[in-house]
Write a protein that binds this DNA or RNA. Sequence first.
DNA 1: GCATTACGCTACGACTCGTAGCGAAAGCGT
DNA 2: ACGCTTTCGCTACGAGTCGTAGCGTAATGC
Lengths: 206, 206
Amino acid sequence: MQSRSPAAGRPGRPRSAAADAAILAATREALVELGWSKLTLGDVATRAGVAKTTLYRRWSGKNELVVDAVAELFDELCLPDRGSLAADIEGVVLQFAAILARPEARGGLMAVVTEATRDDALRARIRASIVDRQKGLVLEGRSRAQQRGELPPETDPEESARTVDLIFDMVAGAVVHRTLVSGRPVDEEWVRGFTQILLRGLAAPS
Amino acid sequence: MQSRSPAAGRPGRPRSAAADAAILAATREALVELGWSKLTLGDVATRAGVAKTTLYRRWSGKNELVVDAVAELFDELCLPDRGSLAADIEGVVLQFAAILARPEARGGLMAVVTEATRDDALRARIRASIVDRQKGLVLEGRSRAQQRGELPPETDPEESARTVDLIFDMVAGAVVHRTLVSGRPVDEEWVRGFTQILLRGLAAPS
DNA sequence: GCATTACGCTACGACTCGTAGCGAAAGCGT
DNA sequence: ACGCTTTCGCTACGAGTCGTAGCGTAATGC
């Protein structure tokens, strides 16, 4: 996507955009059927109807390919204004959960995060194409809540940045853990309870 | 461990307990050096000084082996009484974070969780040897807080069980996400902010 | 037409997988 | 002491995947 070849007005035959799309779609399909560990690049190439060499000319390996394939799933994330901070949180959490509920996202996202533990370049790629977009939603939601008077305005900008990171880890982490570790669905009931605690805290009366 | 051969008074040569320990230690060592995807069972066998066939006689594959190797890391988790709910939370979060900071836990734990997405037996094994122990700490901490009067007593037992699951996902999820996705350390400052939000909520004044 | 690049195809050595077969070693009961 | 049973280390094996190289062909810009 953003990091791959610009292909600006170079001489010679241009790369097929259709092949790109077919490869990414085939990757997601294989991810559903086989899972991360049994997914092979040769199989993806066959599914996409391209040669294995074509695949290697565009992606350096399994990790990079799957990051791009999974990142497309997060394009649909947005933050419609629902009138209150609680409603905004519930909306975006349900969106995020809906994406994670898809099997190609479950296995794929977790696998690349695992690999990113030992690969800084891969981690940067994940951050740029997936994580930063999500964090932007947190920023937007807080800004709206401050305008509504639901949250106090920022004082220290550095403190403010830390809080955004913290909230982001709490929201995304809880949804991911619920979905992938506990293995239970993120339904409306769960989201209500989660939002309640996030906004008012554990000590508050239910 | 609990699920493997009981080896009760059978005839014949008993299995070497030293080999078990050597294999698990070698697995963690290989996990640090190579990471999940490049770890091979042949390599682990060589490091442990045993034959590859011996390894396959005890574990059915990479997943099961790594679960057992990583599970040992969580044996040290406990919940010392620090006098208040906030202090208890901070204590156990720092313990959990210290384990996750070790490279053999980062890659290994995430990898087996990823694989568990498509393997129910593996998920059950993870739950039994890792997750349930953590959830027990949540239960214990809430019980103490209720005795201190920091939390309201339970009314509906079913509602109560849901709340424990929710808190568990929020705590563990946030720490895991901070460590593995955001890639930033869980230090005392972060833990203070996290506990503050978990107990008093976002809307509370800082 | 010509240079340049992408593409499909085949083939290749290197590696890992998981299993089978063998002889030797280590315990247990008599 | 003697077998019986099970484990262990070793070697070897077919199957599968990896990532690359080479080749002829297709598509684009000048």
